[in-house]
Amino acid sequence: MTSGIQALANTVGQKIRENSRPVRHDRPIGPARWPVIILFLPPALMLFTLFVIMPIGEAAWYSMYNWTGYGRPENFVGTRNFEVLFRNNAFRLALWNTGLIMLVSIVIQVPLALWLAMLLARKMPGVVGFRLIFFLPYVLADVAAGLIWRFVYDGDYGLFAALFGFFGLDSPHVLADRNVAIYAVLAVVVWKYFGFHMMLFIAGLQAIDRNLLEAADIDGASGWQKFRYVTLPLLGSTVRLSIFFAIIGSLQLFDVVMPLTGGGPSNSTETIVTFLYSYGVMRMQIGFGSAAGVVLFVICVVLAFTYKRVLMRND
């Protein structure tokens, strides 16, 4: 029996290799294609330069000035903003929290989404309804979700107050506790975004050749074995993509946190972007905020490129 599954695993492996064999586009750019390039490249290139390249360059430039955001930056301070930034406890906490969010997204959110997707990819009555319900949090506006959860967590008038009150207990104020608030935020993040990953997985699962699963059934594979040796390997590229989105999303997390905690209490729920906003924009220290932005940019680029090069090179 085991050898049958082994053979099946080999077939699966081969299928993956076939699918992911890099295709090279070596067609030379001949004179016939120049008009197309000249006509269609400039608009896209211009937009990209205007809205992506230039802001990045400007942020890098501002980050070397002590600048309030009014007029032109004139007070050059070199690398001082970066030195102050890395000495800043709130920023270190923001880095730590962002890492924690990333970890939880990968270790809890993605597996949870995969598990639910396995349940909901089957053809069963009511499946569409459940998909909709689980996808709903993702559709909700981030700020609205933050406000809703702020009310849920409220220990005086919120859902928590009602729940604990029902059992005759004093409700905790989770968002007011420095040691707990970040976990409350993490719960909301998982709740908010798992539906997105679940949808990715459902799409990936539906693309899997059912014959392979039937073959595994005939070989007498258990449910776990089918998952481990057929489904997961064939879903590999989707999993890697999903983790990639989870990482990028964690780095950019802002809109849920602001209405929920505003980064408090005592900066304990600050992320890199909320830090940038509270300490850069709100304090009229655009130079300092830009330095935080540059650090975020470097982290994003390094992570994204390393991940793509190392894990997604065949996808």
Partner: peptide, 12 residues
Amino acid sequence: FQPGYLAATWPQ
């Protein structure tokens, strides 16, 4: 202060 004051907004 009231319980949970560290998260309380001004209107609250």
